[in-house]
Design a binder for these strands. Structure first.
Length: 493
RNA sequence: GCUCCGAUGGUGUAGUCCGGUCAAGCAUAUCGGCCUUUCGAGCCGACGACCCGGGUCCAAAUCCCGGUCGGAGCACCA
């Protein structure tokens, strides 16, 4: 029966079921699979620097799910590579999370747990699923590409255990020893074939000094900890898909319950500098003033710019966690932030590129400008403007005024521009649609706006705004985080 | 090259698992209107999308196959 016919039959016989309430399509994150009771989730940054915009995604998504289902959110600091650690990051990361409103219930630092990793590694060696290899790196790689075992793969657990003990005691005489996890030497994905679990790194670790020199690789310590900490759900980027496959081997060898994994697509963030190594280099050579330089997208920099924690949360919830890669949208991010800050941002006049113009024939007048259009209870900015006074307007506006054109100085009076000079027209707003521009009184003082690209815009700011700081809107200019009497940072329009 | 993943308007997404309420929702952007005066906010309106081809089915954005395009990873970073 065609659908039309079905419908007519239904409407005759069973009219009730046609009344379907259109339900609101709520914008929320999809549910996680296999949730039975409270969840245990984690975020696992490496302490190479402070958190940035990209990190905020994983932090907030994890936080959202733990809030939804109840449970624990573990901050696990992954500092198993001493060559990639900034000691200051141990303190900066929790601060960034706190500012973002991410509620972590536990903090685990992997460098506290090296003995645990050694213990688990020995168990694997005894099971015969891990071996110590001291082949040359290139030889080892070549064999794997061909799907062939290296000579060490067949050694007995006892021999491997002994050699591993020497390696962790730092007494191994073998050249570049590594502990390898056996998987499938012919696995279709070459990267999953026998993977490295530990390698030797000389030098000092910021937290453990020279006590250890045989360090676990991320795939090893992550798998061990995900089990030991009782993780139920792991959400992370699609760049970890093949890592997940590697880590599952450990779960199977130990007979552990495998957590529910979900890999979300990578978000590329345009116009951003996120790589910690590049930022760090820039800070050292003086390109950037610090981790919170306005040109960067660290949490600290965005906070200093004037972005609100709630903006991050709303943005990441709205963009969801699909498996497809996507591009971050500054337009939407800014729009969300604007909605949040607008209501509390008083309005002021800032004239960029100022030029003083005389208004001939103007009366003495008290200008009364609302701090927030439409909300008189918020108060007014009042300025006594003398007769025949000069005011400042932006040169950019001046260039756009045609000869003979009438324009309004906002909340002041109308003027006519003719032959290069202004003449007072009337105070009452005219009914006709005319261009409205902003202005500054003669006693305004210098103010500099720092742009997100590091550029500086010099201009004049009206007197009543001098002494206050915070987030304001400079009319017809944009939202500004005013940090001192003479300086502010541009947030967005 | 190999392994895996994905494809909804300019952008970001909802819906896809369990085909029909989807002639496809929301946000953002753009354009227009309203608002005793911002290029802001708010309200109203317009614009605009299911990658292509085949199949299954009464019915496909949704299931199956092929193609195209895009992405992630590829071994001693995390």
């Amino acid at each position: 029966m065609p659908q039309e016919q079905q419908k007519s039959v239904i409407s005759e016989k069973y009219p009730d079921i046609l009344v379907v309430e259109k339900k609101e399509q709520e914008h929320r994150l999809h549910d996680l699979k296999n949730v039975n009771g409270p969840v245990v989730m984690r975020m696992a940054p490496s302490p190479s620097g402070p958190l940035h915009l990209g990190h905020s995604r994983m932090a907030i998504l994890n936080d959202e799910y733990v809030k939804r289902y109840g449970g624990r959110l573990i901050l696990r600091i992954e500092d198993t590579n001493p060559q990639n650690i900034d000691p200051a990051a141990y303190g900066m990361i929790p601060k960034d999370l706190e500012w973002l409103g991410v509620n972590t219930t536990d903090i685990v630092i992997q460098s506290d747990r090296f003995d645990l990793y050694y213990t688990r590694a020995k168990e694997l060696i005894r099971m015969g699923v891990a071996y110590l290899c001291s082949c040359d790196v290139n030889v080892f790689k070549d064999l794997l590409m061909k799907g062939e075992a290296c000579p060490h793969r067949g050694l007995s657990p006892e021999a491997n255990l002994e050699r591993f003990q020497l390696a962790i005691d730092g007494k191994s005489t073998e050249k570049s020893p590594v502990l390898v996890i056996k998987t499938d030497i012919k696995h279709p994905n070459p990267s999953v074939r026998d993977w490295i679990a530990f390698r030797k790194i000389s030098g000092s670790h910021p937290r453990t000094g020279t006590k250890y020199s045989f360090y676990p690789m991320m795939n090893f310590s992550v798998a061990i900890d995900d089990h030991e900490l009782g993780l139920t759900h792991v959400i992370r980027g699609s760049d970890h898909i093949s890592n997940t496959e590697k880590q599952k081997y450990l779960f199977r060898y130990f007979g552990w319950k495998i957590p529910e994994y979900f890999h979300y697509g990578t978000i590329s963030i345009p116009d951003s500098i996120l790589k910690t190594s590049i930022v760090k280099k820039g800070i050292l050579d003086g390109t950037y003033s610090g981790w919170d330089d306005v040109r960067l997208q660290t949490i600290g920099a965005l906070k200093r710019r004037g972005y609100q924690p709630e903006t991050f949360r709303r943005y990441w919830i709205e963009s969801g966690l699909r498996e497809v890669n996507a591009e971050f949208s500054w337009d939407i991010f800014n729009s969300i932030n604007r909605q949040i800050i607008d209501a509390n941002a008083d309005r002021f006049f800032f004239v960029s590129n100022p030029i003083s113009v005389k208004i001939s024939g103007s009366p003495a007048i008290l200008a009364r400008i609302p701090r927030y259009q439409g909300k008189p209870e918020r108060g007014f900015r009042e300025y006594r403007i003398a007769a025949d006074s000069n005011v400042y307007i932006s040169k950019d506006d001046l260039m756009n005024i045609k000869d003979g054109e009438k324009i309004r100085l906002k909340d002041l009076y109308n003027v006519i521009y003719r032959n290069g000079s202004f003449t007072y027209s009337e105070t009452e707003p005219s009914r006709e649609k005319i261009k409205i521009i902003h202005w500054c009184p003669p006693e305004s003082s210098a103010f500099t706006v720092e742009g997100p690209d590091g550029s500086l815009d010099e201009g004049l700011l009206e007197p009543l705004a001098h002494e206050i700081t915070g987030i304001f809107q400079f009319e017809r200019y944009g939202f500004i985080n005013k940090t001192s009497s003479a300086r502010g940072i541009y947030i967005h329009n």
